[in-house]
Every structure is written in C-alpha cells, then in structure tokens.
C-alpha cells in the first residue's frame, strides 16, 4: 500500500527519502502551475526549486489541519510567484512554441496555426486577469483539480470557487471578444 502524503510529511523532517518521495509525487504539478503563472521555463525551474527548498525547511511545521500536502505546496508556490511578479513588475511572455509541441490533435498545419493563434490570445488575456482568477483557471484546466480541491488550495468554499469560476469565464469571454474584434 502506498504511504500517504501525511505520513511522509511527518517523517520528512528527519528522513530524506520520505521528502524525496513527496518531491517526486508533486514536482511536476508544482512546476506546471508555476510555468503557467510565469510563462517561462527557466523561471518555472528556479521557482519550483525555491518552493521545495522552502517546503523542506518548514516541513516539520506541517500539520494535518484537513488541508492536503499538495494544497500546502500550492500555497507556497502561489506566494513565491506573487513575490516574483512584485519584484519584476513585468508581464511575462509565454513560450508558445515549446508549449504547442505538446498539444494533442491539430495535425493539419492550418488547424495548428489557428489553435496557436487562439491559444496565444487566450493566454495573453489570462495573464491580464487578477491573480486569483489565473490561479483558478490553471488549477482547473491544467492541473485538472475539482472545485473542492481548488477550494482547499485557495482557502475558499466549493461554492465560492464555483461562483468565481463563472465570473472568470464571463470576463474572459468579454475580453476575448473584444480582442477578436480588434
């Protein structure tokens, strides 16, 4: 039987293998989340490293308060990304070339070009949204978390996440339509 995150987190302060297992389980998700928040692979690597270094320093303080270990990591990542944006005060550029290689389907070059353009526009608009809305969209579509899981990460109820999601979709649609008319 697989050892739970909670059990591993308890042992992680003194057992490097336990922390290593936690790292293996979550590093890809944290990297993916940070990548979409920063738009750059190098920054995503740097911030992912910082998330796990901070987690390692504070793992002995992690307590089971009904919040999963992954939510704790997402919160660390969220804070570090917020600091990163504050420090840089710039709008990041998305490395779409690299990302589109991973896109499933879209075999035809024309379809690929259209998808590329749409994806480009959409990501630009997403990056203009308030931080919490960006976080919600990444967790929902890229990390494929449920509303309840997103609520645990964001410290909100499932209902609040649902309502924020609908508000985000409608503002995204408005922005997208505005952008398309230009």
């Amino acid at each position: 039987m697989e050892t739970s995150d909670l059990e591993l987190a308890r042992r992680a302060a003194s057992d490097s293998e336990a922390f290593g297992t936690l790292y293996e389980r979550h590093v890809r998700k944290i990297y993916n989340y940070i990548y979409y928040r920063t738009g750059d692979h190098h920054d995503a690597e740097d911030l992912t490293a910082r998330v796990f270094q901070r987690a390692l320093r504070h793992v002995d303080g992690f307590r089971d308060m009904g919040v999963p270990f992954s939510a704790w990591l997402y919160r660390i990542a969220h804070n570090l990304v917020a600091n990163w944006h504050r420090d840089r005060s710039r709008r990041p550029v998305v490395a779409l070339e690299e990302q589109l290689v991973l896109m499933p389907g879209a075999q035809h070059p024309e379809a690929l070009a259209v998808e590329r353009e749409q994806g480009d526009e959409l990501l630009t608009i997403i990056r203009r949204l308030p931080e919490e809305r960006q976080q919600l969209l990444i967790l929902k579509f890229s990390e494929q978390l449920s509303n309840a899981e997103i609520g645990e990460v964001m410290g909100r109820t499932e209902g609040a996440v649902k309502s924020l999601y609908h508000r985000t979709l409608s503002s995204l649609r408005e922005e997208y339509e505005k952008q398309s008319k230009k």
Binding site: V27, N32, L56, G119
Partner: peptide, 29 residues
C-alpha cells in the same frame, strides 16, 4: 471557451535532468 482553455492550458513537464538534479540537491541539503 472551456474547450479552448483545455487546449491552451495543456500540462507541461519539467526537464527530467532538472527533476533529478533538484531531488539530489534537496536530499543532499
């Protein structure tokens, strides 16, 4: 819009070398 979001926000993977190197660094620390 949800379909477009699903396509735009595809999961990305970190480089395997990065994952291995960071693990080594954390365990070493």
């Amino acid at each position: 819009l949800e379909r477009m979001l699903r396509r735009a926000l595809v999961p990305v993977e970190p480089r395997p070398q990065f994952v291995t190197r960071l693990r080594g660094r954390l365990v070493h620390v």
